[in-house]
């Protein structure tokens, strides 16, 4: 993987380390990054994007603790070998969190109850219940 694959938006309300983790999550979930593929070094990412290396380390550390990445001794970080076949339901559900949070916020602004939103969501997902 190349450091240029990441996009950093410093002015976004989302902290940079979270932007990196979210992008890694999507790149892995979509298969653009394969299990075992090496990640660019902290220095490469920090240098390419002119961001603080500690921010990159933090992102890698978080991604490692979430099981997205694993540390290969002497080689650096790589995409975890467990692949997405073994992604638990809660891991996959977590990918929807940002969108669900936005839906929750908009629903509150529109003063809609959670039940009403849920009924709509069931319908959208083709669930007859």
């Amino acid at each position: 993987m190349d450091a240029s694959l990441l996009t950093i938006q410093p002015a976004s309300p989302e902290p940079i380390y979270r932007q990196i983790v979210e992008q890694l999550r999507r790149l892995i979930a979509s298969g653009q990054l394969h299990a075992g593929e090496l990640l660019p070094s902290v220095r490469d990412v920090a240098g390419f994007h002119a961001i603080n290396p500690m921010t990159v380390s933090r992102a890698y550390g978080l991604a490692e603790s979430e099981g997205l990445l694993e540390r290969l001794r002497g080689k650096g970080m790589a995409v975890a070998s467990n692949g997405h076949a073994t992604h638990s339901q809660s891991q996959r559900l977590a990918l929807l969190d940002p969108q669900l949070s936005a839906v929750a916020q908009h629903a509150r602004e529109l003063e809609l109850s959670a039940d009403a939103v849920m009924r709509r969501l069931h319908k959208l997902m083709g669930d007859s219940k």
Binding site: V42, A46, G47, A50, I51, P53, M54
Partner: peptide
């Protein structure tokens, strides 16, 4: 400017 920021970031971080 980007070069300066890179220099600052790497010197602090490394």
């Amino acid at each position: 400017r980007r070069e300066l920021l890179r220099e600052i970031a790497l010197r602090a971080g490394e």
